[in-house]
Simulated scan of single mutants.
Amino acid sequence: LPVFEELNGLLFYPVQYEGEESSKNVFYTGAAPNQQAIPAVDYLMNDLGVKRWVLAGTDYVYPRTTNKILEAYLKQKGVAAEDIMINYTPFGHSDWQSIVADIKKFGGAGKKTAVVSTINGDANVPFYKELGNQGVSAEDIPVVAFSVGEEELSGIDTKPLVGHLAAWNYFMSVDTPENAAFIKQWHAFIKDPKRVTNDPMEAHKIGFDLWVKAVEKAGSTATDKVVKAIVGLETPNLTGGIAKMLPNHHITKPVLIGEIQDDGQFAVVWQTEGTVPGDAWSDFLPGSKDLEGDWTAPINCGNYNIKTKTCLGSAAK
């Protein structure tokens, strides 16, 4: 981030992230927490009746910040502290026996329990395997993951994961003409009909399409001209809706919950009506709820305090 800001470059960031920033030089086309984590918790709470929560993550900034937001949100919804279990493990963690035993015990208190997983990368395979080894099924304690998509499932044994959930803004299985055309193009390009698409690929396509429209509108690729031109522009997403670039440099996205199938694809079991605008600053953290990003005049600031009417940091130069 400091490099892009110092050199006045542009970054289109297509992966879900923890929020809590809005930079003039970054366009956040992946999900903010309110476009993935919060709706996933709402689904578990409202549709599955979950009362106890395991927030399990890999030990780095995205899971820690996301879980901080989720913990505050759950408590605001009336969930007691003793009904929230938080656990962090290192990258590539492989010995899940005692942690899964703890989850199983936590879920055995007579209240419907779910795992909200920000576990990243290779650690997911032994985690789900151990759930299977200890007889924890998706019906008993469902896991909803934020970092497990089609690419992660390709090439691994998906049996232990079947029935568990993931929250994204796109799935390869979505049946729209736009998605069918994109998959066809991708397979022709990669020359491999078995290769999968995934959520960050859709987010990247959206970002590229919006950049092209901004360049055409501005008549220039110059950073400041593109930044000015891009806010308010729209482009079709691959799920049948429209992605719009907002003044806080986030976009509008649908939220989908998918159930993992044995072929490594997802069956959509729930989705939002229409799209959700990305929120740069969480409404559930005390230091953030009064902040908003707005890179249009007259505010021109990524962290503007709406109460004090002041810009707290990296305003546009």
Rank of each mutant, 00 (worst) to 15 (best):
I183P: 00
I103G: 08
G241C: 04
K289L: 10
G207D: 04
P193W: 02
K228H: 09
F12C: 05
Q134N: 07
W281F: 10
D42P: 03
T235W: 09
A80R: 12
E259L: 11
Q261N: 13
T176I: 04
G313A: 12
D140H: 05
V3R: 07
K253M: 13
D263Y: 07
N8D: 10
E202H: 05
S314Q: 12
D95H: 10
V268H: 01
Y304P: 06
Q265L: 07
K244N: 07
D283C: 06
E234Y: 05
L131F: 11
I230T: 02
S154M: 10
A80S: 11
A297L: 08
K129T: 04
E259H: 10
N124Q: 08
K309E: 14
D175Q: 08
E151T: 07
L238H: 03
P236R: 13
V226R: 12
K184G: 00
L11G: 01
I103D: 00
V116H: 14
R52M: 00
T221G: 15
G149Q: 10
N133K: 11
L153M: 10
T65Q: 15
P236S: 08
Y73K: 03
V276Y: 05
K253Q: 14
A32I: 09
S98P: 04
G108T: 09
V125Q: 12
D294C: 09
G155K: 10
T65F: 03
N305I: 04
C311H: 15
K253H: 13
H249M: 06
T113D: 15
L153S: 08
Y43H: 01
K194L: 04
V100M: 02
P286I: 01
V61I: 12
H204R: 05
D263I: 03
V212D: 05
Q271F: 09
G313H: 13
D279L: 08
V79E: 00
I190L: 03
A40G: 12
L210D: 02
T89S: 13
N46A: 00
S137F: 09
E139M: 11
L44D: 00
K205F: 03
P14E: 13
G92C: 07
V212A: 07
R64Q: 11
D224T: 11
A101H: 02
I251G: 10
G49S: 04
I119K: 15
V41D: 00
H164G: 09
E21Y: 10
S147L: 12
E6M: 06
E292C: 02
K213N: 07
N120D: 15
Q185P: 01
P200D: 06
V115S: 02
Q16C: 12
T272Y: 01
E18S: 12
M45G: 00
G135E: 04
K225P: 09
V231K: 01
A123N: 11
W295I: 08
